[in-house]
Simulated assay, not measured.
Amino acid sequence: MKMKRLFQNENAVSPIVATLILVVVAIAGAAAVGTIMGSFSSDVSDEASAEDAAAGASTQLVVAGSTSVTPLAESLKSGFEESNSGIQINIQDNGGDTAGVAAVGMDVIDIGLLSRELTSSEKEKYPDLETHWIGSSAVVIIGGEDVVTKFDSSNFSELTTDDLYNMYNDSSDGSTSAKNLTDASGTSISTVNVYKRSETRSGSEYIFSKFIAEGDGDFISGTKAVEVTGDREMLETIADDPDGLGFVDFRFALEAYEEGIDVNFIGVYDGGDCRLMKGCVEDIEHMNVHIQKSLNGGTVPASVSPYPDPYPMGLLNNMYMVTNGWPSSVESRFINFAQQPASMDLYTDAGYFSLLDVTEQP
C-alpha cells in the first residue's frame, strides 16, 4: 500500500503522519520531506475536525515541491477545482525542488513540482519517476541599487559568466560575502555581496549555477555566499541590500514589480549569441520580451529594444509535474488540465510561459 493512501483515513491522520515522519526521516534523512508531511497533517486534521468533513472532496491530490512553481500550481488549482468538483488539490508551499522529488519518489505525495531537470542521482534513487512538462520560465540576475549604479558609472559594459563565477568563487566567510569587481579599465567597482539559496538544489540556483560554472549545478551551494530561503526572500533581501547580487525566477521579479518594489536587472553576456548589455533590460517589459523571444527562437524587434539578441538560453528553465510511475487517472486529469490550451490564461495571470508560448524547449 502506498503511504499517501493512508491519508484517506482522516480520523487517524495525526498519529499515522507522525509515525511516517519518523520513518521517512530515519530512513531517508529528508528533513524537508518531514516538513511537507507535518504541514499536510495539520491541514488535513483541520479538515477532519470540521462538521462538514463528510461532504468534502471525494478525492484529494497532494502536491508539493519547487517554490518557483508553487504559485503556478495555485493558479491551476483554482481553475481545475471549478470544473472538477469531486477532486481537491492540496498544495504544500514548502520543501523545495529536492524535497518534492523525494516526497513523490517515496509516495508521500501524489505530484511533485520541479523547476529543473531531474539529476542523475535522483533518477538512480527513484527510477520510476516520470516528468511532465507544463511550461517554462527563466532565472533573472538582480542587484541592489548601488550595484547597478557602480556598473553604470564605470567602463563596465557587460557582466560575463566568468565575472559571476569569480564573484561567487571568491566570496569571503562571515556575515557578508564579498568580491571586489574590476571594470574593463581596471578600476575597482567596490564590494558586491552575493547570495545563494538555503534549500538543497533549488531549481533557480541549480539553473544559475550551471550557467556560470560550465554546467556544474552544485557550484554555488558550495560557496560561502549568504543563504536565503526561497525566491521571495532572495528578492526582498537584494531589495534591502544596496550592494547585493543574486538571482530569482522571473515570475517573482514580475510580482515584485507589480507590487511597486524596485527590481534592478543585471545584464549578462553568456559568451554566445546573447549580449544583454547594460540598459538593455532596465525594465520588466523588455525582460519579458527577451525571455519570450528566446523561448520562441526569435530576435527582439528594434521597436522594443536596440539589442536584438534574446535572453541567454542557459538561464531558461522548464517547469514539470512529477509522478512516481505513470500517473493515475486523477493525477492525469490535473496534469492534462495544466497542459491544455484552455488553461493558458492561468499561466499569463501567474507570470509564467505556457506551452503555447514556447516553440523551443530549453
Rank of each mutant, 00 (worst) to 15 (best):
A73R: 01
S329G: 09
F250D: 03
A184Q: 15
L245F: 08
V63Y: 00
T299L: 08
A55N: 03
E331G: 02
L114P: 09
S185A: 15
Y165Q: 13
V140P: 11
A99D: 11
P312M: 11
R197W: 02
T161C: 08
V304Y: 02
D283K: 01
V192G: 05
G79M: 12
E285F: 00
G29R: 10
F156C: 02
D243G: 00
K278E: 11
V62T: 01
I111P: 03
V25Q: 15
V24D: 15
P362K: 14
V24I: 09
V23N: 11
L276E: 03
D249T: 07
L129N: 12
A30R: 08
A73L: 00
V300Q: 03
E10S: 09
S171H: 02
E51N: 04
V194W: 05
S209P: 03
R232F: 03
A53D: 11
D93C: 04
V13E: 00
E158A: 13
D349R: 12
A28G: 15
G174F: 06
Y347C: 08
S157L: 09
V24T: 07
K77P: 04
D183E: 12
V194Y: 11
F353Q: 09
S303M: 01
Y165S: 12
N11V: 13
S83I: 08
T98E: 11
V23D: 15
F247Y: 15
K77M: 05
Y311E: 02
G95N: 06
A178L: 06
V289C: 03
T160S: 14
M321T: 14
A213S: 15
M37Y: 01
V147H: 09
S328I: 00
G271C: 02
K293S: 09
K224R: 14
Y126E: 08
I21M: 14
A253C: 07
N336C: 06
N264R: 09
L22Y: 07
S185G: 12
D170F: 12
A73D: 02
S121R: 02
V24Q: 12
R275C: 07
V104P: 07
R5A: 09
G260C: 10
D110H: 08
Q340P: 07
Y165R: 15
L114N: 08
E130K: 15
G38T: 01
T176Y: 04
S120K: 10
D241W: 00
K125N: 10
